[in-house]
Amino acid sequence: MGIGITQEQRDLAGAVAGWVARTVPPEEVRKLLDAAPGRHGRPAYWDALAAQGLLGLHLPEADGGGGGALLDLAVVLEELGRAALPGPFLPTTLAAALLHRAGARPLVRALATGQLLGAVALGSGTLTAAGTADGYVLDGTAPPVLAGADADLIVLAAEAPTGTVWLAVDAAALTVRVQESADPTRPTAEVVAHGVPVPGARLLDLDDTLVHDLAGVLFAAESCGTAARALTTATEHATVREQFGRPIGQFQAVKHLCADMLVRCEQARALVWDAARAAHEPPGPRGLTAALATATALDAAFSCAKDCIQILGGIGFTWEHDAHLHLRRALVARQLLGGGDLHRRRAARLAADGARRALRLELPAEADRYRAEARA
């Protein structure tokens, strides 16, 4: 299978780019910077997004989706990341993907058709789940939840006597407070449970590695868009900004910096596409590709956003330019998932484990062959 995407997926990317440019132009995003802190509510574009079929693109048609794959969603997320789309698209589609894996079909359909907004807490924080006759009782605080203040349904992890459990909890039963986030266009929220009962039917058959693998792939896909927007902004500026009578893009330092940004973008894209294809593989290959994609894409977004501001010079540091919006988006992604080194260490562990398993399988066969040759 080729590492690239198909022409149909390229056409999908172009259609999404056109839709978001018309529906949520940059001036609409910037309005959120000056808005009072608090809940933004259901975005004005949400119904149109659902009508386009983008919320359930990666889900089966039987569950209200479009019958596509996670790679199709990754292609869409890159374009929405390029536009710094505000709101809970990424958290909602991640929640839908996890609920689909857990077999919670009614909730999946509600998310895929835009009836509910979703969010996912990436970790358990101090949440505990005490078992009851018909479910669990939640207490404690979750880690910061991206777009949690606007969600109707939040996927939470909690520590139970039997280990970590994942639960789909109605946001109305929780205490949710908008946090002062580095990215006010999509702030995080503090989610607290005070003796919240959760029915046993809301217990999800998920494990930590699957949740973090899927989250990593989707955040990485969006980060590719952040990096690509930074690259485009920097190169366009370098062709028109002149110093000493020449475009700054002709200077070696700027030229090489833009080339390095391009390499980072292309590496991240290739790894994300590979990880999205491997989403249904066994935990080892899935985790390895997800860890590499997450590490590379999140670092690429952060470093490209910073390099873009450097190439822009004085204008890049101003509130009026959009460059800081993309740096904010990249910064929050790293805060939620961790920096690239964390994921690279995980990739190294998974690769070493895979190599050890392969050796254990191969060595007995080699020993038998040598014994047979010796007897002969």
Rank of each mutant, 00 (worst) to 15 (best):
G2Y: 15
G2F: 15
G4F: 09
T6D: 12
E8R: 13
L12K: 13
A13K: 02
V20I: 15
R22N: 13
E28Q: 11
E28I: 01
R30C: 05
G38W: 12
A50H: 10
A62F: 08
A62Q: 10
G64L: 00
G66M: 06
L73S: 09
L77N: 01
E78A: 08
G81N: 06
G81P: 10
A83V: 05
P86G: 14
P86H: 05
G87P: 02
P88H: 06
A96K: 01
A96D: 07
L98W: 03
G103I: 15
A104T: 04
V108I: 15
A110S: 04
A121K: 01
L122Y: 02
G123C: 06
T126M: 15
T128L: 08
T128A: 15
T132H: 03
D134A: 05
E159Y: 01
G163W: 03
A173I: 09
R177K: 09
S181N: 14
D183N: 14
P184H: 10
T185R: 03
R186T: 12
P187F: 14
H194P: 00
R202A: 13
R202F: 01
L204G: 02
L210I: 01
V211S: 00
H212V: 11
A221F: 10
C224P: 01
C224M: 09
T226P: 02
A227K: 04
A228H: 12
A234P: 00
T235Y: 13
H237C: 07
H237S: 14
R241F: 10
Q243M: 14
F244A: 12
G245C: 07
P247W: 03
G249F: 09
Q250E: 11
F251E: 13
V254T: 13
V254F: 00
C258N: 13
D260Q: 09
R269G: 01
R269D: 04
W273P: 00
D274M: 06
T289N: 02
T289S: 06
A290F: 00
D299K: 00
F302G: 00
S303K: 07
A305K: 12
K306T: 08
C308I: 08
C308Q: 11
I311P: 06
L312I: 13
G313F: 07
E320R: 12
L325F: 12
R328F: 15
V332S: 03
L337N: 00
L342F: 11
H343W: 06
A347M: 14
L350D: 02
A351V: 09
A351I: 04
R360Y: 10
R360L: 08
P364V: 09
P364D: 05
Y370K: 13
